[in-house]
């Protein structure tokens, strides 16, 4: 046994701690490839925006769900807060949409802090159930508090100021904004993969008691992860609001939307850099293919896909790709 200390550059050590620059490189490559999408598929921009936007929100979900291991089925709350805060400030106060989105982030962070502080004492399925309850209550309140949200009749965004000289309603502009958001989320995830804070979260996910024994304050760190996840999701929500141009509480705060974000991450693989992107591509792109080729059967196939993934690729399809590559 060599007595000299193992050097930091020793290959075993380098392999042992997820070398950061390496995965960051992959992130850039993937984003760069995606940047060509609007050029190649100019007739499918709407689809592209949807995929990239949902991939971004699913990656944001994964910060809490995958990296920290807290299954939230209420993230639509932040999508809704992002969209509504932005739209209401634009419509009622004449605020620019990007400042509106920032305000949405602020509101989401406040909500997440309260929500997390109260419910993070619950573990396992109980946290998931509580998140459903919070989201459903938010939806009902948003639906009924018409003086604030416009109620069930929804909100529409007929016009928006130009953003850096760009038309925010152009699908192309929306695509690149979504791509920036996805980039932010994936870079955040890749930072979690190697940073001190990221290791804290992963340790909490793996074993909360053992994490405490090495000096980690799980409640504080879980809340912080929740804040980050909420902030990113909220940004996605603001863009989603612009993308739709019209929205109502029933869609924006729906359980369906929350479940969808979680499913994308799970189908692609939670706690991985690109799992949520793979999941979003498959679910959104896949359901479009299904809509065209299996009219009326898309939800059925969607359900079947979930069952098959759980049975045969419980760690997500991303891991299947990895397995295939190893062979």
């Amino acid at each position: 046994m060599p007595q000299t200390p193992l050097s930091v550059s020793h290959p075993a050590v380098r392999r042992g701690v997820n070398a950061g620059p390496w995965s960051l490189g992959w992130v850039l490559v993937v984003l760069a490839v995606l940047a060509f999408y609007p050029v190649v598929f100019r007739n499918f921009l709407t689809l592209g925006v949807t995929i990239v936007l949902f991939a971004g929100m699913a990656t944001a979900w994964d910060v809490l769900g995958g990296w920290t291991g807290q299954l939230s089925l209420g993230h639509a709350v932040f999508v809704g807060i992002g969209a509504y805060t932005m739209a209401l400030l634009v419509l009622r106060a004449g605020v620019a949409p990007w400042w509106g989105a920032m305000a949405g982030v602020g509101a989401s962070v406040v909500v997440a802090a309260m929500w997390g502080a109260v419910t993070f004492r619950l573990r396992g399925p109980y946290f998931a159930l509580a998140s459903i309850a919070v989201a459903e209550m938010t939806r009902i309140v948003a639906n009924n508090w018409a003086s604030l949200t416009g109620g069930a009749e929804g909100v529409s965004l007929p016009s928006l100021p130009r953003f850096l000289g760009l038309d925010l309603f152009s699908r192309r502009v929306e695509f690149y904004i979504a791509l920036v958001l996805l980039g932010l989320a994936v870079v955040a995830a890749s930072w979690l993969q190697r940073s001190r804070f990221g290791y804290h979260l992963q340790a909490i996910r793996e074993d909360e008691d053992a994490a405490m024994a090495v000096g980690i304050n799980p409640t504080r760190d879980k809340v912080l992860a929740f804040l980050a996840s909420a902030a990113l999701t909220s940004l996605g929500g603001s863009l989603y609001g612009i993308f739709l141009g019209f929205f109502e509480p029933r869609g924006m705060f729906s359980l369906d939307l929350s479940v969808q974000l979680a499913l994308m991450a799970y189908i692609g693989g939670v706690g991985t850099l690109f799992g949520p992107l793979v999941g979003a591509g498959l679910l959104v792109g896949g359901s479009e293919v299904l809509r065209i080729y299996f009219p009326g059967k898309s939800l059925f196939v969607y359900g079947l896909l979930i069952i098959l993934v759980v049975l045969f690729a419980p760690d997500g399809l991303g891991t299947v790709v990895r397995r295939v590559r190893r062979v």
């Binding site: 939800l299 359900g303 979930i306 069952i307 759980v310 049975l311 419980p314």
Partner: peptide
Amino acid sequence: PIARAPEHASILMTVGIGLVLSNV
């Protein structure tokens, strides 16, 4: 088949079962 899998597997599985059944 997934009796020993972590709890999120059963949550996803039942979500999937629900979707398939309601579409049937």
